[in-house]
């Protein structure tokens, strides 16, 4: 069913779901939302199944026209939002009459917002997922970001009723200009010099403008390696912090390559990946080392807040 026409696409708007798991062995990255938490919250608020696809909006949001009556909800980064000329809130399901115009205005906090419609956006499933992987041009809507004139269908059935879910409080603390991100050291911290690890733990890095859905290139004091020998390439899960020869860390994000040969100093914990996903160029990033128990506690707390 046709739901939304794209009048202006925004800076980078892509269809995402929970990701394309099971094909990294063939070089296919997982993709999926940069802020998995806000993506899931949007689906929870509309009573959607977990696998429903949302629209990830980056820094500058789109302008959309409802081709017929629908509902939608926006989560994640805080933007000024307008339904026709009225200001509408983030995190609350909205009734969108046919012909009305939904528009993102000024961004207040965070980098990425998520738009959900009942049933999720209807794009083809490829290898089990609707997620867009931009570097390869695969998945989502023709493997690319939205352009003006696109029409996004929803999987809403005529009978679907939108539950009136009320928010109980924020699930994710949106970063203000930067964030302290928790990591677990490893798997290859031994390839970094002890003073390099100390630098990593104590530095406020800048997220450079060479940062995107593939990864964040950071700028700051160099992390020294134990030797110049590069290990054999192996898997690089999302959240891996790589140290290339320059010593400037690279944090691999949703669209990151499946394998890499730079030493892997640390890995962002699952609960803080969504926070990292709300950062953009110009923000700062610091790293706090934690252990598995703390990582799991944080993830469970986040899950409880999401499903409360």
């Amino acid at each position: 069913m046709m739901a939304l026409r794209v009048d202006k696409p925004g800076m980078l708007s892509t269809v995402q779901d929970l990701g394309r798991w099971g094909y990294q062995n063939l070089g296919v990255p997982v993709a999926g939302p940069m802020d998995r938490c806000s993506h899931r919250l949007a689906n929870v608020l509309l009573g959607n199944p977990p696998e429903a696809a949302t629209l990830e909006v980056t820094l500058i949001g789109p302008e959309l026209t409802a081709e017929r009556r629908t509902h939608l909800v926006v989560t994640g980064a805080e933007f000024d939002l307008f339904l026709d000329d009225a200001t509408v809130p983030t995190g609350v399901p909205l009734n969108v009459p046919a012909g009305s115009r939904f528009r993102f205005g000024r961004r207040r906090r965070g980098a990425r917002a998520y738009v959900a419609v009942p049933g999720g956006f209807d794009v083809p499933i490829w290898l089990g997922s609707r997620a867009t992987h931009l570097p390869s041009g695969l998945g989502g809507l023709a493997g690319r970001a939205l352009v003006a004139g696109d029409c996004l269908g929803s999987r809403e059935t005529a009978a679907a009723a939108v539950p009136t879910v009320r928010r109980r409080g924020p699930v994710l603390a949106l970063p203000e200009g930067g964030a302290r991100i928790r990591v677990m050291l490893g798997p290859q911290e031994a390839l970094c010099a002890p003073e390099g690890i100390e630098t990593f733990r104590t530095t406020r890095y800048a997220v450079t403008d060479r940062s995107d859905r593939m990864g964040y290139r950071l700028s700051g004091p160099a992390v020294t390696l134990a030797s110049s020998a590069e290990p054999l390439s192996d898997a690089t899960p999302t959240g891996t912090v790589q140290i290339p020869g320059s010593g400037q860390p690279i944090v691999l994000m949703a669209d990151g390559q499946t394998t890499g040969g730079y030493p892997k100093l640390a890995t962002v914990i699952s609960a803080d990946l969504p926070v990292a996903g709300q950062l953009g160029p110009g923000d700062w990033m610091e790293f706090a080392v934690c252990d598995r128990a703390a990582a799991l506690r944080a993830l469970i707390a986040q899950e409880q807040a999401l499903l409360a």
Partner: peptide, 13 residues
Amino acid sequence: RDVISSYAAVTVC
């Protein structure tokens, strides 16, 4: 979720 083989290592997500 995923089992990835590389040159000399196996990674399980």
